[in-house]
Design a protein around this nucleic acid. Sequence first.
DNA 1: CACGTATATGCTCATTAGAGTATACACAGT
DNA 2: ACTGTGTATACTCTAATGAGCATATACGTG
Lengths: 127, 127
Amino acid sequence: MESVFEIIAEPNRRAILSLLVSSQQSVGEIERKLRMPQPTVSKHLRVLREAGFVESTVDAQRRLYQLKPEPFQEVHAWLAQFRRFWSGYLDALERHLDRMDQSTPNKKKTREKTTRPNRGRDQGETR
Amino acid sequence: MESVFEIIAEPNRRAILSLLVSSQQSVGEIERKLRMPQPTVSKHLRVLREAGFVESTVDAQRRLYQLKPEPFQEVHAWLAQFRRFWSGYLDALERHLDRMDQSTPNKKKTREKTTRPNRGRDQGETR
DNA sequence: CACGTATATGCTCATTAGAGTATACACAGT
DNA sequence: ACTGTGTATACTCTAATGAGCATATACGTG
């Protein structure tokens, strides 16, 4: 279970991730909302946690799980190399923004920090 | 092997897909470039073909494989729901463009046609 | 038509992942 | 301290997947 792709290959895990989009959830909440046996939930959460998709905070006996961004970025980075094929849309958008960046050096400097840790493009090598 | 996620969970298949980004390739070319036994290549190509990731055209005894866009869009659509977390970047871009659309009704009408078949957003349901 | 090349398929084997069940561990309240 | 709730883990079983090898099929060429 090394790659992020193997992690998200499992339907129940994808369901859990989707559920966590709205807000953090306890194991019990996930269990009920997804109608999944508790050990199953815990096991998938463990996998997700070890892969960096989620992290848990302790609330008494409960564990609250919430999403973490990195692995999604990794998937996105891999997907990026195929963009030219199917989209052209996001490509255009990114090029557009890049141009914006140059023309208006710092209007919303948010982007500078938040969005591009390594390099403007997120083509990034996956491995 | 139903979902697109299971398809791309396999490293060799991802390698093949990445290889096909540059241009279409014959089975033999893939075999050599990836140093993979031919039956392995053929079998993975079969999986990829049946999942709609690639299609083959006949060139005498050779089969030339090339990428198809749909499954990638599906992955992208799934990934979209998590954007708010990790990026904010693309989200910002899209919002920005949306605003652009409204303010300048048709400056580059390219986007109108090319980029948004269904609706501005591509959040799209996956299944 | 025989042969070589290119690709696909069939079969077996080993590994692995996920489900299910039981159980252990942790904390809270009484 | 005891009990109940919430969560994690251990163990077994089964199914599915990918590798490896052999072989079949298709096509082009002499």
